[in-house]
């Protein structure tokens, strides 16, 4: 920066405390390593390893959970998530198109929906679907029982976020694409469906996958709806077993099952993102 004004030796400032910049950097980094190693050693000595293993890693209890934790709990978690995601995807797409519509009331309705459902905790929505709706509309039965309720609750939550993602994706498609399509004789709706939306989808694939991960975790809230034994998913399953056995191992196993799905998905997102970056070039 100052290279222009100082003709000679611009970089070699007078040495502060006898250390060069490089030496100071080395000292600072070394200090950080020392603190880190000290913290790890302190934790290793302070922890009661026998007790921790007893509480979290009892092999017989873990073994007892199989195969149900996969065939029932994980299966239900995936089922809840995917059904909620599909509902959210469709509803989110509709909301995004309403948000971008030239018809005022469409924009307002979509805007109000998004503001409300983005601002409410997912937990509250589950309580609303599980308790308030049956009380407010007696005699109504949500199709699909618990599965239907979860799909709607997760869908309502996911749609608000996905609508914003869709909107950003549609707006990221260059204006020239719509103009080219219109100049070829496409109607506005046709141009949107055939030309703009497919391109928007590619742009938003990474954030959409992130949304899937969020819904995957939120599916644990289904326990608020009061589920039968057959409808339990990972969190409920783990918690039930944990209280039965008075041990935390089931919680750990359930947690690992979540990571079994979310970590690969995260990997996929990063791959998609780097691919998208390349495509832009």
């Amino acid at each position: 920066m100052s290279g222009v004004t100082e003709p000679a030796g611009a970089g070699t400032r007078p040495r502060a405390k006898g250390l060069t910049r490089r030496q100071r950097r080395r000292v600072s980094r070394g200090a950080q390593y020392v603190v880190f190693v000290a913290a790890v050693i302190a934790f290793a000595f302070a922890a009661d390893w026998g007790r921790l293993q007893d509480q979290f890693a009892q092999v017989d209890i873990a073994r007892q959970m199989f195969p149900d934790v996969i065939t029932l709990a994980l299966r239900n978690t995936v089922l809840y998530t995917v059904s909620g995601f599909v509902v959210g995807l469709v509803l989110g797409m509709v909301l995004a198109l309403m948000r971008l519509s030239s018809v005022g009331p469409y924009r307002w309705v979509a805007g109000i929906y998004i503001e409300i459902f983005r601002g409410l905790p997912a937990l509250l929505i589950f309580v609303f679907i599980g308790v308030a709706v049956p009380l407010a509309f007696p005699g109504t039965e949500i199709v699909g029982g618990t599965y239907g309720k979860v799909a709607i609750a997760l869908g309502l939550v996911g749609a608000a976020y996905m609508a914003e993602t869709f909107r950003a994706g549609i707006q990221a498609v260059p204006k020239g694409q719509m103009e080219a399509a219109r100049s070829l004789g496409f109607s506005p709706a046709r141009a949107m469906i055939s030309i703009v939306v497919p391109q928007a989808f590619r742009i938003i694939l990474p954030p959409l996958t992130n949304e899937l991960v969020l819904l995957f975790k939120d599916s644990s809230l289904v326990l608020l709806l009061g589920v039968t034994l057959e409808e339990r998913e990972l969190s409920k399953f783990g918690r039930d077993l944990a209280s039965q056995t008075a041990n935390s191992t089931p919680i750990l196993v359930a947690g690992l099952c979540y990571l079994l799905v979310t970590i690969p998905l995260g990997f996929v997102v990063r791959r998609l993102e780097s691919k998208a970056r390349e495509a832009v070039k």
């Binding site: 260059p174 020239g176 103009e179 080219a180 219109r182 100049s183 070829l184 004789g185 496409f186 391109q199």
Partner: peptide, 18 residues
């Protein structure tokens, strides 16, 4: 849309569908 079918347009930025 019917009129535009009879008018071809070529843009500065090509605007091919990528």
């Amino acid at each position: 849309d019917a009129v535009r079918r009879r008018i071809g347009m070529v843009f500065q930025q090509f605007n091919l569908f990528p």
